[in-house]
Lab assay of single mutants.
Amino acid sequence: MSIQHFRVALIPFFAAFCLPVFAHPETLVKVKDAEDQLGARVGYIELDLNSGKILESFRPEERFPMMSTFKVLLCGAVLSRVDAGQEQLGRRIHYSQNDLVEYSPVTEKHLTDGMTVRELCSAAITMSDNTAANLLLTTIGGPKELTAFLHNMGDHVTRLDRWEPELNEAIPNDERDTTMPAAMATTLRKLLTGELLTLASRQQLIDWMEADKVAGPLLRSALPAGWFIADKSGAGERGSRGIIAALGPDGKPSRIVVIYTTGSQATMDERNRQIAEIGASLIKHW
């Protein structure tokens, strides 16, 4: 067993022997301040990774656009098919120029040779490549099948209805392509620590998230040296922004954090800054 596999296998073990965790309302004060600064709703939840206990939450059962955070769930569904012998990570998928959609920095470079399922998941999570996500959605049967996968996990809230990039439209009061912070946090925890996926697939999923290259201005910008984070960000229309993450000190994750916002007129930089400040408060009061 590799060191990384050992780390993920012992996530519940280490967490069980940690000192009790206590909620700190100071972080919620910052979440509410972010709402004021952005002029928009902000949803927040913080779960203990081992027990699933909610440590703090704000608007945990209000719907927010998922945006690209759905790509972690998508690759979880792909990995479940791999575990069941219905898919192979090494299978190569070929596609054409007509398949390319807006923001496809990886797939646009491989029109000639195609990409493997493993490479597509890596591109979808680490670079948020939209064509990679659409190609992977095709392998599982489309958005409705991802929703069905989530329902089978016990998540009857999260739903995907459309493809990239239309799913980022974020129309107010439109339930399409949305989740709730509580539902997303619980589902992410199941994917990373539950028995739904094999140990190898859980490790692969967290490795992809740990290698995320496009979430630097968010929670990662607030992390002290030595902290662990595996995350996936999302951005959408109407001032929408979000991030889902597993993080913790001492090089291992111990909490799940989900943050979503929508309806702001603020710039992307300002949305990023507010999420980073929430992260800084979380870490300060850990």
Rank of each mutant, 00 (worst) to 15 (best):
V29N: 11
A84G: 09
V157A: 06
H285S: 05
V78C: 15
L205V: 04
D33W: 02
K190H: 06
G43D: 00
R202C: 07
G85N: 05
I278R: 00
H94W: 07
H151G: 11
L188F: 03
K213N: 06
A124D: 01
T178L: 04
L146R: 01
G279A: 05
W286Q: 03
L196Y: 13
Y44T: 04
H285A: 04
N50Q: 05
R202I: 15
L160M: 11
R162K: 12
M115A: 05
P224E: 10
S201Q: 15
V214M: 11
I229M: 13
A276T: 10
F64P: 00
G194W: 12
H151R: 07
R255C: 10
T131C: 06
M127C: 07
D177L: 00
D83H: 04
L49S: 10
N173G: 06
D155E: 03
A200P: 06
A246Q: 11
Q86A: 04
E56A: 04
N272V: 12
Y44F: 11
R255Y: 12
A200T: 06
D212V: 10
L197N: 04
I54H: 15
P172M: 11
A34M: 05
F228W: 07
D269G: 07
A245M: 10
E164Y: 07
A200Y: 06
Q97A: 07
E164H: 00
P165K: 13
E102A: 11
G242C: 12
V72R: 00
D231C: 04
R176Q: 05
K252Y: 14
A123I: 15
D48L: 03
R271Y: 07
D207H: 09
G90T: 10
E87P: 10
V72D: 00
L197T: 10
V258P: 00
Y103M: 08
A280I: 14
F70G: 13
S201Y: 11
G39F: 09
V258T: 04
L160N: 02
K30G: 12
T262K: 06
P181C: 05
L192T: 13
N134P: 00
A245Y: 02
W227N: 01
T267H: 06
Y95E: 05
I206L: 13
A185D: 00
S201M: 15
N168D: 09
M268G: 13
R176G: 09
V106W: 15
E108Q: 13
Q204P: 05
E46K: 15
M268I: 15
A200E: 06
T139G: 06
K144D: 02
G85H: 07
N98Q: 07
A40S: 09
D231E: 14
I54N: 06
V78L: 14
A183P: 07
V72Q: 01
A133Q: 00
D99T: 03
P253I: 15
R238F: 13
G248K: 07
Y260N: 04
Q265L: 09
G226C: 06
G52R: 14
T107W: 02
A276H: 12
R81Y: 08
W163T: 07
F149H: 06
A84N: 10
Q265N: 06
A185Y: 00
I45T: 06
E277Y: 13
L47A: 11
D174T: 13
Q37Y: 04
F228D: 14
Q204M: 04
K71E: 00
E46I: 15
P105M: 03
M153S: 02
Q37L: 11
V82A: 11
G239K: 03
R63M: 15
K53M: 15
I93S: 14
E62N: 02
G76L: 07
E108H: 15
G216V: 11
R202L: 06
A133M: 01
A183M: 09
R273T: 08
E164T: 00
E175D: 12
T139N: 10
M268S: 10
S68M: 00
T178W: 01
M115K: 03
V82D: 04
A276Q: 06
D212L: 11
G76W: 13
K71N: 00
L55N: 14
G236W: 02
I256A: 07
A123D: 07
P165Q: 04
K32P: 03
S57Q: 03
E270H: 02
R255K: 03
V214F: 14
Q203T: 02
L188D: 01
G39I: 04
R118Q: 13
D174R: 12
D36N: 10
Q274I: 08
V72P: 06
R220N: 09
V258F: 02
G90Y: 13
T198K: 06
T126V: 06
D48E: 03
N272E: 08
D174Y: 08
G154K: 09
L73S: 09
L282T: 04
F58G: 11
M180V: 04
L79P: 00
E164M: 00
T261Q: 05
A245R: 00
R176E: 11
V258I: 13
L38F: 06
R63E: 09
E26L: 09
A245G: 07
P25K: 15
G248N: 12
L223Q: 08
P217Y: 11
L282Q: 10
T112V: 14
I45N: 13
C121W: 00
L197K: 14
L191M: 03
V29G: 11
A276K: 14
G236C: 03
T186Q: 15
I243C: 15
M268Y: 12
T139K: 05
L73A: 11
T158E: 01
T131H: 10
S68L: 00
H285D: 07
D212N: 15
M180K: 02
A77K: 02
N272T: 13
I244K: 00
Q204T: 05
D250A: 03
R241H: 08
T198G: 06
L74T: 07
G142H: 09
T116Y: 12
P65E: 08
P143S: 11
N152T: 11
G90N: 15
G279E: 02
T139V: 09
P165H: 15
T147M: 05
I140C: 13
Q97C: 04
V29L: 12
S104H: 14
A246N: 15
K213Q: 10
I244A: 14
F228A: 14
K252H: 09
T147L: 10
S201I: 09
S128Y: 00
K190F: 02
H110E: 10
H156D: 11
F64I: 10
V72W: 01
G194E: 11
L247S: 06
A182C: 03
Q37P: 08
N168I: 13
G76K: 00
W286M: 10
D250N: 03
G216L: 08
A200K: 15
E237M: 04
S128H: 00
G236Y: 06
W286N: 02
E56Q: 05
A77N: 04
I259L: 05
A132I: 00
A182K: 03
L146G: 09
L247N: 01
K190L: 12
L188M: 14
L196I: 11
A280N: 12
M180R: 03
I278V: 14
N173Y: 14
E87A: 15
D129F: 00
D231I: 14
R159T: 12
H285G: 06
E277V: 08
G194Y: 13
D129G: 01
L135H: 05
L282S: 07
G39Q: 09
T158M: 04
T116I: 09
T27P: 12
S57G: 04
H110S: 14
M67R: 01
N50F: 05
A124P: 00
R59W: 13
R41H: 11
A132Y: 00
S264N: 10
K30E: 10
Y95L: 09
K109R: 05
K32Q: 15
M153P: 01
S254E: 05
A170V: 02
G194K: 15
S233Q: 04
